[in-house]
Design a protein around this nucleic acid. Structure first.
Length: 232
DNA sequence: GACCAGGCACATC
DNA sequence: GATGTGCATGGT
């Protein structure tokens, strides 16, 4: 059977990319947070923000004993903004945390298990209705706080995979997600660690000013670029 | 001192 | 529907 050459990354390559990353970095043990609530708070705080800054804000919230639904609801927007200051955009994020906490209480009486009992489609739609929760934040909450099978697309995903021709950088979020979800086994654990690996390789090697030198994906990507990898 | 980071809502055309 | 802008800190 004829087997044409190509020079772009394909969806059928995505599992191999994961295997390479996993071998290079080991399992990433995500999300870096102890409880579903902490993960949700982290998902808001990390919006367009370096994780090191988020860690500071979370430490402060913990030290103030406010990292709980009751704690976050019981303080003023102004006080909350002051506590999360190191995470940046603190006024915006204080509002977003408040709206998320209100949602949890209004919709689930503050019970995470009640929330987890919903179907993923319904839950995702409701989360997207919360002010300050967009598609990436919703999927991070679904996957990492609630263990629901929803692949997370972020800036690193678009940057790394668009550079190698998988899809256009500005393709719709849901279309990017559909590419990964169609190409990969339906495995929540895989979705979890794959996104974590992307962030890892992104931070280490694929910022806006690329530091591609020791990237574990180099030889694989080079092989594709040089037309050496045939269809499989 | 410029550039960047695990987005999102809103205004304007 | 597409495009532009505000939001803000801390590390490189």
């Amino acid at each position: 059977m004829h087997c044409p050459k190509r020079d772009k990354l394909r969806p059928s390559d995505l599992l191999q990319v994961y295997r390479i990353l996993r071998k290079a970095f080991g399992h990433q043990q995500w999300w870096p947070g102890d409880t579903p609530l902490e993960i949700m708070v982290g998902a808001i705080l990390t919006q367009n923000t370096a994780w090191t800054n988020v860690e500071k804000a979370i430490r402060i919230l913990k030290a103030a004993k406010k990292l709980s639904m009751r704690g976050l609801r019981g303080i003023s927007r102004r006080t909350l903004a002051r506590l999360i200051r190191p995470a940046g955009y603190f006024n915006v994020k204080a509002d977003r945390l408040k709206s998320l906490m209100d949602f949890l209480v209004r919709e689930y009486r503050g019970n995470i298990n009640r929330m987890r009992a919903e179907t993923i489609g319904v839950l995702r739609g409701k989360l997207l209705g919360v002010k300050g929760v967009g598609p990436e934040t919703a999927d991070s909450i679904l996957l990492y706080a609630l263990n629901k099978r929803s692949f997370v697309i972020d800036a690193y995903t678009r940057r790394i995979f668009s550079r190698h021709g998988l899809a256009a950088h500005d393709l719709d979020y849901e279309k990017w997600q559909a590419i990964f979800e169609a190409a990969l086994p339906r495995d929540t654990g895989l979705y979890n660690d794959y996104h974590a690996q992307i962030v890892r390789v992104g931070k280490d090697h694929c910022r806006k000013t690329p530091r591609c030198g020791a990237c574990p994906l180099n030889s694989f990507f080079e092989g594709i670029k040089n037309n050496k990898i045939l269809c499989k």
